[in-house]
Design a protein around this nucleic acid. Structure first.
Length: 569
RNA sequence: GGUGGCGUAGCUCAGUUGGUAAGAGCACUCGGCUCAUAAUCGAGGGGUCGUCAGUUCAAGUCUGACCGCCACCA
């Protein structure tokens, strides 16, 4: 049996993430982790907050607190939201953790020793008023190309020309507005990715054949254009110190230490081992120390693909050490909001905190995963969200469970009835479900979330189809034995639906499973599970404790469109 | 400007290497049922697959041009 290491792209620390961030990495990673656990596989699911860099510094300043304090506070906020969405991380760490300092510095030292780092002197903008160097994008001025007065030092938003801060006319600090700027020489370490390009290409040609098109096409595009060496240090205070002589005032670029956070968060996890349990970080990450059987799957949205397919692998390869490289890579396209981007600054779209205030996590998980932007960008629409909840969760799954509740309570004293033997209808049901479970399994193993969701929905629908076939509400009057057998089998479907739904809607799935007090809990995800439909013990108490999901009303949709902005914005 | 991607039923999207693939869900229509949160089950209508021109025995599926949209440019 293989062991599965799963990582989700790390959410940045500067604020609450929106639904696009959620569905682009953390949520599908969680569904996959849950599916594998359900299969009986050994899983380690790791995530963390990405905390370094200028945006964090500025957000902290805006919040009027020290950046460390800001990060601690926001890490807690994000951790709570992740719990709210039932993201089942084995550990949710922080890139500012000491473990990441040690590993990041270690990688840099290895890279330097192996000749993959080189110090180069660059011109950086220094703001005397701010008392600090300014990253390119925090220098503003007039664009030399089009005359736009608020061009950023990296690029003019008006004419889209790529700029160097030194080119700007009347440059000023975007932080303080000060024009008291000067160019200073500053030495920085460059990761010599160009020297690793051939190895990266060969690796991608090999491993990448199984990745989504969006991943390999982006990676190859960068390789085809010629992989540039990349500065991995910055003139900042907030970050991981660079352990080289002459670099005492500098830190690593956030994109260098962030993916190493996958490793360091695993170290954090190992350090948190409870009494009597031994956890080995190395056995998950070092192929010379037990990780040779690990299958490593990364989840990310497409903006992160270059770092996961090129920069981070370059870091690992350049270290000359046997660290685990990614095996399966799942990249997602964008989730838009009514056709345009989610935007934190314009407060456009729905954010994780908003979402949980409105409806339970399961409803969001279901909508997002069953409509995930796997092969192309997709659009969030409240109307579709409501349809998805009402049609699938309320109408198909919830309704099936509730139909069982009504019959069992009314006619069978709330317990699984004992009379009757299954017939051809039941054997046919089992056969259809067996085929559907096989499909479900195959789609999940292929990381096809929309397809696995559609298959799961088809399994739910089989519950309703079965009731229509046997019509127990009618049979109870003419053939009570048949009605009893039907409802016992229906409860078998309830148990199976609950079990199989765990990756998508864990809370509702748990309620379904728990509704049958004392029934044997299913395990695994194989098609033989279909037989369990016929194996509910007579006398098993059945109690859902109320409706599984609430309908989303038209009034709610209208209210939310108004509150969050709909098509017009 | 450069690069990448996209334009398939009213809506959101699937469509492996070109040949029963023109599909799914929702919406809509009709019918069944009435146990169930006006839920469910069945059937059906609907698209010259952005435009034009090519390659081919055969093209959403390849080539070129054009129109429109999006993203990225470290």
């Amino acid at each position: 049996m293989a062991r599965h290491l799963i990582t989700s792209a790390l959410p940045y620390i500067n604020g609450v993430k929106h639904l696009g961030n959620l569905v682009g990495s953390m949520l599908p990673a969680d569904a996959y982790a849950r599916f594998l656990r359900l299969s009986g596989e050994e899983v380690l699911f790791i995530c963390a907050t990405d905390e370094h860099g200028t945006p964090a510094e500025l957000a902290a300043a805006a919040a009027g607190c020290e950046v460390e304090e800001f990060c601690t506070r926001n890490h807690e906020i994000q951790a709570r939201l992740c719990e709210g969405f039932e993201l089942s991380f084995d550990h949710f760490g922080r890139t500012s953790h000491l473990a990441n300092h040690q590993l990041t510095q270690h990688f840099a030292e290895q890279l330097l020793a192996n000749g993959f780092l080189e110090s180069r002197v660059t011109k950086q903008v220094y703001s005397l008023a701010d008392g600090r160097f300014l990253p390119d994008r925090y220098v503003e001025g007039t664009c030399p190309n089009c005359g736009y007065e608020n061009a950023r030092g990296d690029q003019c938003e008006n004419c889209t020309k790529t700029l160097d801060p030194a080119e700007l006319i009347h440059p000023r600090s975007a932080i303080s507005g000060s024009t008291d700027l000067e160019l200073r020489d500053s030495a920085h370490m460059f990761l010599l990715q160009s020297k690793l390009a051939d190895r990266l290409r060969a690796w991608i040609d090999d491993k990448g054949s199984q990745w989504p098109t969006v991943a390999t096409s982006i990676a190859r595009k960068w390789l085809d254009e010629g992989l540039q060496d990349r500065g991995i240090t910055r003139d900042l205070k907030w970050g991981i110190p660079v352990p080289f002589e002459g670099f005492e005032s500098k830190v690593f670029y956030v994109w260098f230490d962030a993916p190493i956070g996958y490793l360091s968060a695993t170290v954090e996890w190992a350090q948190l081992a409870p009494e009597g349990e031994t956890r080995s970080f190395e056995s998950w990450w070092r192929t010379d120390q037990g990780a040779e059987d690990v299958i490593y799957t990364q989840f990310m949205a497409k903006d992160n693909i270059p770092f996961h397919t090129l920069s981070f692998p370059a870091t690992i390869m350049g270290s000359g050490e046997p660290w685990k490289l990614v095996d399966q890579l799942k990249g997602f396209n964008w989730l838009n909001y009514y056709g345009d981007k989610f935007s934190t600054s314009q407060h456009r779209g729905v954010f994780m905190g908003d979402a949980l205030e409105l409806l339970p996590a399961d409803t969001w998980r279901w909508y997002l995963l069953s409509n995930a932007p796997e092969t192309s960008d997709t659009s969030f629409r409240w109307e579709l969200f409501a349809d998805s909840v009402n049609k699938d969760l309320v109408g198909t799954l919830g309704n099936f469970a509730n139909r069982c509740v009504a019959q069992i309570d009314r006619h069978f004293d709330g317990v699984a009835p004992s009379a009757g033997e299954p017939g051809d209808v039941e054997r046919s049901l089992v056969k259809r479900v067996r085929g559907l479970i096989e499909e479900y399994d195959a789609h999940f193993n292929a990381l096809e979330f929309r397809k696995s969701a559609a298959t799961l929905r088809a399994i739910w629908a089989e519950g309703n189809v079965y009731l229509e076939e046997r019509e127990p509400w009618r049979a109870i009057k003419t053939d009570p034995v048949m009605a009893a057998m039907t409802m016992r089998v229906a409860l078998g479907m309830v148990r199976l639906c609950g079990h199989l739904s765990t990756p998508f809607i864990p809370a509702a799935a748990q309620r379904l499973v728990n509704s049958l007090d004392g029934a044997e809990v299913l395990s695994g995800v194989g098609s033989e599970l279909a037989d369990s439909i016929l194996e509910i013990q007579a006398g098993t108490p059945f109690d859902m404790g109320g409706l599984l999901f609430a309908r989303v009303t038209e009034e709610q949709v209208a209210d939310w469109v108004l509150r969050f902005g709909g098509a017009e914005s």
